[in-house]
Simulated scan of single mutants.
Amino acid sequence: MSRKVMITFGMIIGSFAGGYLPGLLGAGGISLASLLGSGAGGILGIWIAFQLTR
């Protein structure tokens, strides 16, 4: 796979996981915690995918 596809895939998976985790811990599905978690997860997913494709 190309580097761009891997980074995009990492962003999607990270955003999903980061937005879903607060819901598992008791926060609402549409809450500030889910929004912030989704953003943080996306950034973390991009960083991990970037490190793996170096």
Rank of each mutant, 00 (worst) to 15 (best):
Met1Ala: 07
Met1Gln: 05
Met1Gly: 13
Met1Leu: 03
Arg3Thr: 14
Arg3Phe: 04
Arg3Trp: 06
Lys4Trp: 06
Lys4His: 05
Lys4Thr: 12
Lys4Ile: 03
Val5Ala: 15
Val5Cys: 03
Val5Met: 00
Met6Asp: 11
Met6Glu: 04
Ile7Leu: 10
Ile7Cys: 10
Thr8Asp: 14
Phe9Glu: 06
Phe9Trp: 03
Gly10Leu: 07
Gly10Trp: 04
Met11Gly: 04
Ile12Tyr: 01
Ile13Val: 10
Ile13Ala: 15
Gly14Asn: 01
Gly14Gln: 02
Gly14Pro: 01
Ser15Val: 05
Ser15Glu: 05
Phe16Val: 08
Phe16Ala: 15
Gly19Gln: 03
Gly19Met: 11
Leu21Lys: 13
Pro22Val: 04
Pro22Tyr: 00
Pro22Lys: 05
Gly23Lys: 02
Gly23Ser: 11
Gly23Met: 05
Leu24Tyr: 04
Leu25Arg: 12
Leu25Gln: 09
Gly26Val: 09
Gly26His: 03
Gly26Gln: 00
Ala27His: 05
Ala27Thr: 01
Ala27Cys: 11
Gly28Ile: 00
Gly28His: 09
Gly28Val: 03
Gly28Glu: 13
Gly29Cys: 10
Ile30Trp: 06
Ser31Thr: 12
Leu32Asp: 08
Leu32Tyr: 11
Leu32Thr: 11
Leu32Cys: 06
Leu32Met: 11
Leu32Asn: 12
Ala33His: 01
Ala33Trp: 07
Ala33Asp: 02
Leu35Arg: 15
Gly37Asn: 07
Gly37Val: 09
Ser38Tyr: 09
Gly39Cys: 07
Gly39Pro: 09
Gly41His: 09
Gly41Ile: 09
Gly41Cys: 05
Gly41Asp: 10
Gly41Pro: 08
Gly41Leu: 07
Gly42Thr: 09
Leu44Ala: 15
Leu44Tyr: 05
Gly45Leu: 08
Gly45Gln: 15
Gly45Ile: 08
Ile46Pro: 00
Trp47Lys: 10
Trp47Tyr: 06
Trp47Glu: 01
Ile48Tyr: 09
Ile48Gly: 05
Ala49Asn: 14
Ala49Glu: 11
Phe50Lys: 13
Phe50Pro: 00
Gln51Lys: 15
Gln51Ser: 12
Leu52Val: 11
Leu52Glu: 02
Thr53Arg: 00
Thr53Trp: 00
Thr53Asn: 10
Arg54Asn: 03
